[in-house]
Amino acid sequence: MNLVVKPRPLLIALGVLLLCAFSLSLALGPVSLSLADTAKALLNLLGFPVAGAEQAQLIIEQIRMPRSLLGAAVGCVLALCGVAMQGLFRNPLADPGLVGVSSGAALGAAVAIVGGAMLGGIPAAISPYLLSVCAFAGGLLVTAMVYRLGRRDGVTHVGTMLLAGIALTALAGAAIGLFTYLADDATLRTLTFWNLGSLNGASYPRLWPLLVVTLGVGLWLPRRASALNALLLGESEARHLGIEVERVKRELVLCTALGVGAAVAAAGMIGFIGLVVPHLVRLLAGPDHRLLLPASALAGASLLLFADLLARLVLAPAELPIGIVTALIGAPFFLYLLLRGRA
């Protein structure tokens, strides 16, 4: 890799990119607001009361702001967890789904959606919360099982953990299949849409838990950057360098379970961010986790915000599930990386 950019300019450039993405995400949408109205609404939001533009104020404050915050947080935490998993498994093809958190969350969601419908309908007011809680709990539970299966005599075997993750993902897939079979048409469609992810319907009360988790993961993982660097050399080498390898592994898995679990609970399944963003950033920044982690967090947030802009503008007034957009961008890019590596 000779494309390495100096750390400071890269972080500044990515920061500016995120700022642009966030501003565009606030300024653009199916409702076209004039620049003046947008500015007034933003001033209001920042605590400088300006009269007029009530409609713009409402749209930006109640619809676009929570949505943009949600997108930024989800993108950021997915990318961070992607870096953590690729570091832990020492494999650039690893994504957060490997430890079972995504399939566990999907199973939790299936239980909530189909089970709720079979129990005669959960009141509409609490059903979104129930769905989030079940998805989060499912992700955490399956990850805990994968981690437990990978441990033997007080040592976590990453290879065993990987295989256990594959096995439990298959098992969760079977259980989801069973729920799909039992579901009626309406719940089936809800489940399908959930699996494609969406930032639609974001609201502040549902946003806070994710913001707290994102902040926690975003502050914690960079402290383990040098440990991740050491892990790149191999586990025993890292141990010789004085890294508490077992503890670091536990922390990485926990961060991923919490981070991806919270992101999936808030926005459904959004693929490819956790896989592609760390890759992309590694091309620019090189493999040093001290730079890779913050740069991936910024890039992940920007990419998801841009993807969401597409999702809500392309078919307006209808909306595309964002998982389709990220996969449409992510999969060809991933192929490009593969072919480029071969040449």
């Binding site: 949408g29 199916p30 409702v31 076209s32 749209i59 619809i63 676009r64 309406a186 469609r189 809800t190 849409f193 969406s198 639609n200 319907g201 809500r312 078919l315 307006a316 007034p317 209808a318 909306e319 599930p321």
Partner: peptide, 16 residues
């Protein structure tokens, strides 16, 4: 104009 599927409505699209 189509507002999408009835269980997955988008607020801003409808407001537009």
């Amino acid at each position: 104009p189509s507002i999408g599927y009835q269980r997955q409505l988008a607020a801003e699209g409808i407001l537009a």
